[in-house]
Simulated scan of single mutants.
Amino acid sequence: MTNPSHAHIEIDGRPATGLDPAVIPVLQGAYGHFTAMQVRDGRARGLALHLERLDHGTRELFGTDLDGYRVRSLVRHALDGSGRSEAGVRVYVYGAAAGGGAPTVVVTVREPRTMPGAPRSMMPVPFLRPVPHVKHAGGVGQPYYGRAAALAGFDDALLTGPGGEIAEGHITNVAFWDGTSLVWPDAPALRGVTMALLERLVPSVRREVRLADLGGYRAAVLMNSQGLAPVHRIGTTEFAVDGELMRRLYEAYGTVPWDEI
């Protein structure tokens, strides 16, 4: 069994302890992308969306496709190697090692995580992710501003543009409730898997949302692969926690099937 405080890591199906020296420069370059999922009993929500994300990212960054069957096989192998059927799993894709061939796939398996249900606070920061539609690896901006938010007493950072337009959380998507629909900020951002699933299940619209507009919304919510939680404060703007809205969202999300990996 993997030590709960450590990750089990496999590179192209091989434990990282026996790392091929040719792979090391590829991993050190940090030019790659990834997806993160929660696994329960060997299953994950929105698996097809995760595989689609990995394939699209691989095509854009490396000019080749990534076979979903290969990804599923590598994830199953890593889960078996870790001794876990419930876990937080990340699949990273990097370029081919020296000599060419298929992209390098790294699977990490850690203890499972669930989004804390307590209301969250977000600190607006002046940063937008480059190439935001790709869940890319590397980069200092997100961890830098996430740490800055934590040091300032907030739970998360909220990424914003030069005109105060809201894009996303530093590791989450965020949406606002106008009393009728979830409003997803129409700004350059990653379309998260949980976001994509909820968009199918609850009334949703996309439009520009600016920091100056926040007072016009009744509630806010953030989400990522770990789940969702209400937002009670963004900067100095307070939001009431809408219990009925959260009930609807939790119930809708609860209907999403867990797909066998």
Rank of each mutant, 00 (worst) to 15 (best):
A78G: 09
G243F: 01
R233N: 02
L214N: 12
P230H: 04
P132S: 11
Y69E: 03
L182N: 01
N173F: 06
R191I: 11
E86M: 10
P116Y: 09
P230F: 10
V256W: 11
L228V: 04
A212N: 06
T17N: 03
G179V: 00
R210Y: 00
D155S: 12
G100C: 12
G139T: 01
L128H: 03
M37L: 14
A157W: 03
V23D: 04
G164H: 01
H8L: 14
P130I: 14
M1A: 13
G161H: 06
G169F: 08
A220E: 09
I24Q: 12
D259L: 04
I234Q: 07
L228M: 08
N3W: 09
G141P: 07
T194H: 04
I171R: 14
E60Q: 14
A187P: 13
L61G: 10
M123F: 04
G153K: 01
L190S: 05
S5L: 15
R233M: 10
L158C: 00
G18M: 10
P132T: 02
I234V: 15
R72L: 05
R76I: 02
V71A: 03
Q226N: 09
G139V: 09
G254W: 07
F62T: 09
E251C: 04
M195R: 15
G243I: 13
Y253P: 03
V134S: 02
R90G: 04
L151H: 01
E199Y: 05
L151M: 03
G29R: 14
W258H: 12
D156P: 07
R218Q: 15
R247V: 13
R90F: 00
P21V: 01
L74R: 01
H170A: 12
V140I: 06
A240L: 06
L198S: 02
W184G: 09
G95L: 13
T2W: 00
A118P: 03
T160H: 08
P132G: 11
Y31W: 13
G101Q: 00
D213L: 12
E60P: 02
P126V: 01
V140E: 09
E251W: 14
D12H: 01
Y94V: 06
G95K: 10
I11P: 05
V209N: 05
G179A: 15
V183W: 06
P188V: 15
Y253R: 11
T108I: 06
Q142R: 14
V174R: 06
